[in-house]
Amino acid sequence: MTPLDFVISLALISVAAGVLGSLVGLGGGVVIVPVLTLLYHVDIRLAIGASIVSVIATSSGAAAAYVRDRMANLRAGMFLEVATTTGALTGAYLTTLLPARFLFVFFGLILGYSSFATFRRRHVDAPLTVSNDRIANYFNLHGTYHDLAEGREIPYKVVRTKLGLSIMYVAGLVSALLGIGSGALKVPAMDSAMRLPMKVSSATSNFMIGVTAAASAGVYFVRGQIDPIIAAPVAAGVLLGATVGARILGRATSKTIRILFVVVLVVISFEMLQKGILA
């Protein structure tokens, strides 16, 4: 395979990764890392560097549309970034403290549970109309979004901000420690804990993952993990895919997005368990 074939085929796969990532609020690393290591036999360190690029590309590409269309909850997202960036910074300097195998098994189980919890909520999707959460009220994190599938404005209230912040801290920690799962905990934190509507959770997660990834991108750049010939097709393809995906989310039903997210989460959970047990 010549470099041109590599660039073209990887760009096409990246378009698909961008569409999927922007729909479920994950970075597309779920697709990019296995494709690069298993299909192209690329060095794992370079694959993780490419995955960081794909996360930022998904986030910026999709969030431009989600913010403009008021699908993402800007205030909640920017507020919760306090926890994700702090977690990411802590994680970058904890890498040597805990064995990676243990972390993979531990978070594989956590993601397995949160996919179950997300799936269970598929019939009780009504947004809250009342919130007594002090933090959410003080920072006014509540919102309204226009649901194209239902053709109406849907107001919602946010609860359990403290629990949300704690999960977000862990989400930042995990993404810095393991290089995957940056959005996998963010969506359940907003959907299950804070009760944001599913599509808003996905759009807001998309908005946030770019900042979490940027907090560890400097380290990856300096360590020489961002290889231009891999990063170029990944960035371009994912950006195109994320722009397309952002158009689909508004029209899809919450239940579709929820089921799609659960499927992807189960795959990530298995991927992590496999890495922890077989590595």
Binding site: V53, I56, A57, S59, S60, G210, V211, A213, A214, A217, G218, F221, I226, P228, I229, A231, A232, A235
Partner: peptide
């Protein structure tokens, strides 16, 4: 290409 990727990485920071 690396310059372009750096612009991409800095976009969320600018945001």
């Amino acid at each position: 290409v690396v310059l372009g990727v750096l612009i991409l990485i800095l976009t969320p920071v600018l945001r």
